[in-house]
Amino acid sequence: MSESNYTKEKKVGEGTYAVVYLGKQLSSGDSIAVKEIKTSEFKDGLDMSAIREVKYLQELNHPNVINLIDIFMAYDNLNLVLEFLPTDLEVVIKDKNILFTPADIKSWMLMTLRGVYHVHRNFILHRDLKPNNLLISPDGLIKVADFGLARAVPGPREMLTSNVVTRWYRAPELLFGAKHYTYAVDVWSIGVIFAELMLRIPYLPGQDDMNQMEVTFRALGTPTDKQWPEVSSFPGYNKLQIYPSPSRDELRKRFIAATESALTLMENMLMMNPQTRWNTIQCLESEYFKELPAPSDPADINIFSQKV
């Protein structure tokens, strides 16, 4: 727990509340990342997301969740020592020089679902899953990261804020302003990421919160009380354009390369009604992961663009 055991060598990124440095653990020589939390004099105390990150990462230890190695204070700043992860899924999806196969996608989905399954079984909601937060280790493992919006599953009478999750990956119950949502919001995000991996462009890119509803329902159908009981009781459920749910054939045409069981998995992750949406266990047990091609070995997936 001391500062002297780590070096900060290079600044690699800066967010609203933290600066990230690349460094080394002196005792082992391993590469690490140091996240220095900015303390501003105008705020009282530490940023909420820093506290959340520390609180939940301390609890979690899984190959597919980012590892919090250490915490130390230096010059009145809080520093989190995290494992070093060179890239993330967003970079991989956007880099057109990187080719990946259906087996690679399956491997990534498998690792993501295992990580989120572990988060959920520890009664934690991640609430900000997106390609940008799925980091990739040097040996190709997916690591669920950024627990700045995470929280423990609330007691039955507690209210939650529906203003979570990056817009494109926001589940319909959040768009409607639900206050008692469940793990299902994370599964929806993974479903959208799955679609994005197959299309290599964002699947539901809404321009603002209203437009997000429009885009989501145009792609997946407007929910009705029949398939989602009491959905019309949401304050946000009014003046909606009614779109029909897409047929299997329409989905097949949108996702040309997807197999039937891949589409089944995606449909069930992108189920409008959170009650019937699959949980991570059902997803992991789906036919998609059993059929050929088998998921690639993470170490074999090429995640860095090859400059020729």
Binding site: A178, K179, H180, T182, W228, E230, N273, Q275, R277
Partner: peptide
């Protein structure tokens, strides 16, 4: 808890008593 199970805003949000009991 069982009373909550009947409230509209809970049903629509995907609330389930077994989640509560399990945790």
């Amino acid at each position: 808890v069982q009373e909550l199970e009947k409230r509209k805003d809970y049903i629509a949000s995907g609330f389930r008593t077994d989640f509560i009991y399990e945790r």
